[in-house]
Design a protein around this nucleic acid. Sequence first.
DNA 1: TCTTTGACGCTGA
DNA 2: ATCAGCGCCAAAG
Length: 107
Amino acid sequence: MKNLNFYEKVYQIVRKIPYGKVTTYGHIAAHLGIKSSSRMVGYAMNSSHTLADLPAHRVVNRKGILTGKFHFPTPTLMEELLENEGIRIKNDKIINLKDYLWIPEND
DNA sequence: TCTTTGACGCTGA
DNA sequence: ATCAGCGCCAAAG
């Protein structure tokens, strides 16, 4: 977990997000030791569109807003996927984010 | 090689 | 509580 590229690190963590849970760019960034550069996490996600097994819909910003919804095939797909996992969405925002929030951990 | 661009987050007003 | 501004650093043009 060290020789991996920046992108790969991000992807690896995103893949670890359990079903029905979400995490934030900030938490991922913090886990990577680049807390100040949470933007890089999102930027890396942009290149992740090629990875079909990457649950990008489980990654939201600090406020729990679905900022990346417009990057999906359809703007509504993201919230649909989240709702499908039992997560309630209101105005492109996750209700009770803290309740669904999942924080990356070291295995 | 230099410049622009972001799926963000924090601080100060 | 809300709003504007700054920082952060990799990738694409």
